[in-house]
Design a binder for these strands. Structure first.
Length: 742
DNA sequence: TTAGCTGGAGTTTTT
DNA sequence: CTCCAGCTAA
């Protein structure tokens, strides 16, 4: 052991990971095992021991938040100049390289970045220009197709197409590429693909970066896609003499982004291709009590093909998990609110409480209950600052200053605020642009008549803006844009427009901050580029980092979010609601190959968010898509050892809601196509005189667990319809079938 | 050009 | 049920 103070307090595995010699390594970092600490300490250790200069390090993350945190913690440990440090997101780093080598990458110097919304509108515009039937080729689908092709590293000519439909799609992909190139814009996937191609084709540039980056660190490696992994291999010079040391840190059990291209298999491939001879496992958890970890371990054990890992803690086992069975979703929410009130009363801070759910639709009922109770709450997942329409409008004007041929920006604001340029004029303009293969801005010269006049006025405005902004500092530029474009005036006259005006003004602040803060400094620190243009750097920043999620950060509030957005966070108390078959695991996932395993990993993530107390709840019935659905409780309950759970409701389902009621026949509900969840249009009527009621969970000797979804008849004729999940939905005569409350 | 209607869809999300 | 996109009528 050295006496290096950086290393004090590390456990054995952490120490081992931090002080590994310069070789490639795979770190399996369990939830709450001090992953970020290891990553940052590793960086600090490498630098402080003189093994590598800050110049020789590349650290990649997925989110700006993670990159910022890493940088902040590193500079706190080891005061240094952040200039020249390559710590950032995949997209941010690729952008940086492309800015430096725009010529070699075949891009205009001031290329703009399309965010997803921009990309979608660019595709819609393309489809319209080509007169494509958008029934057959919906823009969203085409966008998904293009992005996934790019994420596999495939250009149009490399995509296999065996039928006319597929060939047409590829053709559209090609047309989209041509359009982007013409307009000087790149989408997110293009940043990566372009950068990969640059490195692959340009030997001197590749050699330069391979020589430079001696240590590459990758965070959340399980979330990398095919292209990102290839990019890493290229940068690391895999298989070359001077191969860099790559430290991949990740957790296969927390891989929950396959739906957006993440390839867990990269972990195994990495282990093999980089000849990793010892995988380091960080299994000691510093976050949760033992019972919570035991539950998480028990659930994830049902997955196959894991790299293997078992979380443990030195903290005690703590209390058991608290399980609640609710009558319906509304009652579930009411119960959550009652518990929260008690928790707050006992001194738990509101923002130490999180309400997690599988899908966003579930937040409504919770919000309603919290609102009625007057408990401050905060929902994650809304619009972010740079995604708001007024902000995007202002940015579009700025994009036109940087590049008047940016047709996406052009179409966005050509008639906003309205200036009499309707669909007709725009269509003429688009036709002219198409005919003379020029941008919309450039097509003015080919227009005649009324359209020429109105469009001419707008183009004059764009020129005027560019002229007025020449030599101005960024914040002053924003100021000019807001005034001259008429945006501020427009929102001032709009009722309820004050917030939008405030957001517009906030762009000025954002620009000022950007100039003074690291955002710009990082780009400015680029050693091999000419001084970058602040405007275009700011626009990239706006696309690459959409800003904070909209929520009032004011008073401490109860946190509401999906399990996905909770990844990486932790809370004293976690409520995991809606644990029902069909919802979690989600019905769509059950059909996908290995979909259930991904749901299970999601459950694992959910459980491991809790530090001290974890509530699990489900409802017998729930309003979904305007229909009441009766679902079985989630199979995940069966995967958690019973001794870890304390049921807050009497032995599953035996509570006497409903009881007896009308004995008249209830019309039969339509059979469900999904065997494990079941929908019916009616509320929860009490059923015949059998003591059973709709929504109740029951057990059958042959079919196992089920839930009553319908009933009819009374006395000896009483029959109930039961959803037995995998065993199907069946009508059973109560006089004959042995059905017991479960 | 905009308001108002109608129909369709409805996991998860970062850059 | 509830949101959104796209269409029709003023």
């Amino acid at each position: 052991m050295t006496s290096n103070p950086l290393l004090s307090g590390l456990n054995e595995q952490q120490f081992q990971a931090v002080t590994l010699p310069a070789q490639s390594a795979l770190i399996l970092a369990g939830a709450g095992s001090g992953k970020t600490r290891v990553l940052t300490t590793r960086l600090a250790w490498l630098i402080s021991t003189g093994q590598v200069s800050p110049h020789g390090i590349l650290a990649v993350t997925f989110t700006n938040k993670a990159a910022k945190e890493m940088l902040a913690r590193l500079t706190a440990m080891l005061p240094m100049n952040a200039r020249g440090l390559w710590i950032g997101t995949f997209h941010g780093l690729c952008n940086r390289m492309l800015r430096a080598h725009w010529k070699e990458a075949g891009l205009p110097q001031l290329f703009q970045i399309l965010d997803s919304a921009d990309q979608l509108s660019a595709i819609k515009r393309l489809l319209k220009a080509l007169n494509i039937d958008d029934e057959k080729f919906p823009a969203r689908e085409l966008m998904y197709f293009i992005n996934s092709a790019k994420e596999q590293g495939l250009r149009p000519h490399e995509v296999e197409a065996f039928d006319d439909f597929a060939r047409k799609r590829v053709e559209l992909y090609q047309a989209y590429e041509a359009q982007c190139q013409r307009e000087g814009v790149v989408d997110f996937a293009e940043l990566l693909l372009r950068c990969h191609e640059l490195l692959q084709r340009n030997e001197p540039i590749r050699a330069h970066y391979q020589r430079r980056f001696r240590h590459i660190l990758v965070d959340e490696f399980q979330d990398t896609n095919v292209l990102q992994y290839r990019w890493l291999k290229l940068l690391a010079g895999l298989g070359t003499d001077g191969q860099a040391a790559v430290m991949a840190v990740g957790d296969d059990d927390q891989s929950i982004y396959r739906f957006r291209g993440a390839e867990v298999g990269n972990m195994r491939d990495f282990e093999r291709e980089f000849h990793v001879d010892n995988v380091i496992r960080l299994e000691q958890n510093y976050r949760s009590h033992g019972n919570i970890l035991d539950a998480a371990n028990a659930v994830i054990r049902h997955n196959s093909g894991r790299l293997g890992k078992n979380l443990w803690t030195e903290a005690g086992s703590g209390e058991p998990l608290r399980v609640y069975e609710a009558f319906n979703d509304i009652e579930e929410a009411r119960w959550v609110v009652e518990e929260i009130k008690a928790l707050i009363h006992d001194g738990t801070a509101r923002d130490d409480i999180a309400l997690l759910y599988r899908s966003n639709a579930q937040s409504r009922v919770l919000e309603h209950a919290l609102f009625s109770a007057g408990i401050p709450y905060r929902v994650y997942g809304g619009l972010r600052f740079f995604e708001r329409q007024e902000v995007k409008h202002a940015l579009a004007y700025m994009r036109l200053i940087a590049n008047p041929h940016d047709d996406t920006a052009f179409t966005r604001v050509v008639n906003f605020p309205t200036r009499g340029i309707g669909a007709r004029s725009l269509e003429q303009l688009q036709d002219a642009a198409q005919a003379h293969s020029t941008s919309l801005y450039g097509a003015l010269n080919f227009l005649t008549g009324k359209a020429a006049q109105s469009v001419g006025a707008f183009i004059k405005l764009v020129d005027q803006l560019r002229f007025a902004c020449e030599g101005l500092k960024l914040p002053e530029m924003v100021e000019q844009v807001l005034e001259l474009s008429g945006l501020r005036a427009h929102y001032l006259t709009e009722k309820e427009g004050q917030e939008r005006v405030a957001n517009l003004d906030e762009i000025i602040n954002a620009a000022a901050n950007f100039i003074s803060e690291e955002g710009y400094a990082q780009v400015a620190a680029e050693d091999e580029t000419a001084p970058p243009d602040p405007l275009s750097a700011f626009l990239s920043h706006a696309s690459l980092e959409a800003g904070e999620h909209q929520a009032d950060a004011g008073q401490a509030a109860v946190q509401l979010m999906t399990v996905h957005s909770a990844k990486g966070l932790e809370f004293d108390v976690v409520f995991m609601g809606g644990l029902e078959e069909g919802l979690f695991p989600h019905e769509n996932s059950v059909l996908e190959r290995d979909g259930l395993e991904e749901e299970r990993r999601l459950m694992y993530v959910a459980i491991t968010r809790a530090r001290h107390r974890l509530y699990l709840s489900f409802a017998q019935s729930r309003m979904l898509h305007g229909q009441t659905r009766y679902n079985l409780r989630s199979r995940f309950f069966d995967e958690i050892p019973a001794e870890l759970m304390k049921w807050l409701t009497p032995p599953a389902s035996a509570r006497g809601y409903g009881g007896f009621g009308s004995s008249s026949a209830v019309p039969a509900a339509p059979a469900s196509s999904n065997p494990r969840s079941f929908g019916s249009g009616r509320k929860n009527p009490a059923v015949n005189d059998s003591g059973f009621r709709i929504g109740q969970q029951v057990a059958h000797a042959k079919f196992g667990a089920g839930v009553i979804v319908n009933a009819e008849g009374s006395g000896s004729d009483a029959r109930v319809q039961v959803n037995f999940g995998a065993h199907g939905v069946k009508w059973l005569a109560l006089a004959v079938a042995k059905l017991t409350p479960a």
